[in-house]
């Protein structure tokens, strides 16, 4: 009976993903008909997609954006799941813990410096900067987690770290040259637009490596859900495991921040929704489910961000917050009720 639920859940997620993918390729300020799409597909299969009419708008604009939303959304929600496991805290996530903001700060600095000194800022440089910033925030959170026991306080601490990073980012941006600010401003609010095929190659490589590692960690993650004492007793090398987990979640959220800016609530809301959907928290199922769920969620939110007030793009976080924040509120209230009773 349980297995049926798992199959059904994955089938549902894949179907949603397919529908949303087609929809977001077609929808937008310029509508692409199904015929035009099949024409492009046929042309692509024959090896020269450039011949199709819809080529520029789909191949250059929409497809990379769609893939970015899928991969980065999935990465973000897996990163959230890993952090929740690590802290044993259902409302942990890269955004609330200030990890995204740390990455954002580092990327802003990197962007401004490279622009000023005329160094070309490649994808890998951005990821490296974001990763450094993410690790910095994470280590602050780790220091804090040794001192505070209550998980709500940990989240408050993370939010504070986020504010500090944002403040420094704003400060840096204020004193940067005018020309830099425009591109920075768009990115700093979070968006899947403007991601090139070149970027996408790097994103795919980094994320798939990190996601594969996370999936292979399923077994110790499952043991860790019983607490450190029992995990250790069953043979998990706790130290190595914790370091790996932190690095993986930082790489994933850093990769997202480097290309799409900070995206809120995906990391908390999606893992929770997936646990409710599958009725389990088993990492072996949850990691793939979180990836698919995050992809669906971000694709859906990006579709709204793009089309709701077309031709004006909303920032992605505006939309994810609308759908994600109520989920977090629900988690908070239901947990509270459980502890009371």
């Amino acid at each position: 009976m349980k297995k049926t639920r798992y199959w059904a859940a994955f089938a549902l997620l894949l179907t949603l993903l397919a529908i949303l993918a087609v929809w977001s390729v077609c929808a937008g300020s310029v509508h692409v008909s199904a015929n035009a799409l099949s024409e492009l597909l046929a042309a692509a299969l024959s090896g020269n997609p450039q011949t199709a009419d819809a080529y520029p708008i789909i191949w250059v604009l929409r497809l990379p954006r769609l893939l970015a939303a899928v991969i980065l959304g999935g990465a973000l929600s897996v990163s959230g799941y890993l952090l929740q496991t690590f802290f044993g805290n259902p409302i942990a996530g890269p955004f609330v813990l200030g990890i995204s903001s740390g990455a954002k700060l580092a990327v802003s600095l990197a962007l401004i410096l490279t622009l000023r000194y005329g160094i070309p800022s490649g994808s890998l440089l951005l990821i490296a900067a974001a990763f450094a910033g993410a690790l910095l925030s994470t280590s602050f959170i780790l220091l804090l987690s040794r001192r505070v026991e209550r998980m709500s306080m940990l989240v408050v601490g993370g939010v504070m770290i986020g504010y500090i990073c944002s403040a420094i980012t704003d400060f840096v941006v204020t004193f940067a040259e005018d020309s830099n600010i425009v591109s920075l401003h768009n990115w700093a609010l979070g968006s899947f637009s403007g991601i090139s095929w070149e970027n996408l190659k790097v994103i795919t490589a980094v994320c798939s490596a990190a996601l594969l590692c996370a999936f292979l960690l399923s077994k110790p993650i499952g043991a860790y859900q019983l607490g450190e004492v029992y995990a250790r007793n069953m043979g998990v090398d706790i130290r190595r495991f914790r370091i790996t987990l932190i690095i993986l979640s930082s790489v994933l959220s850093a990769c997202v921040t480097a290309f799409a800016g900070p995206v809120s609530f995906v990391g908390i809301a999606v893992p929770h929704l997936m646990k409710s959907l599958l009725h389990t928290a088993k990492p072996l199922l949850l990691i793939p489910a979180c990836f698919l769920g995050g992809a669906v969620f971000c694709l859906f939110c990006d579709l709204i961000a793009r089309t709701a007030f077309a031709p004006t793009d909303l920032s992605i976080s505006t939309v994810t917050a609308v759908f994600g924040a109520p989920v977090v509120l629900y988690i908070l209230s239901s947990r509270h009720n459980r502890e009371e009773s």
């Binding site: 259902p90 399923s218 077994k219 859900q225 607490g227 029992y230 069953m234 043979g235 928290a281 088993k282």
Partner: peptide
């Protein structure tokens, strides 16, 4: 041990089954 654990969405059978950890393969 005395540590109280609150595993999320785990049945008693799954908690007990976690003890098979040292005997299972790569994916557990």
């Amino acid at each position: 041990m005395t540590e109280r654990i609150r595993p999320e969405r785990m049945t008693c059978a799954e908690v007990a089954a976690a003890g098979r950890y040292p005997y299972t393969g790569r994916l557990g």
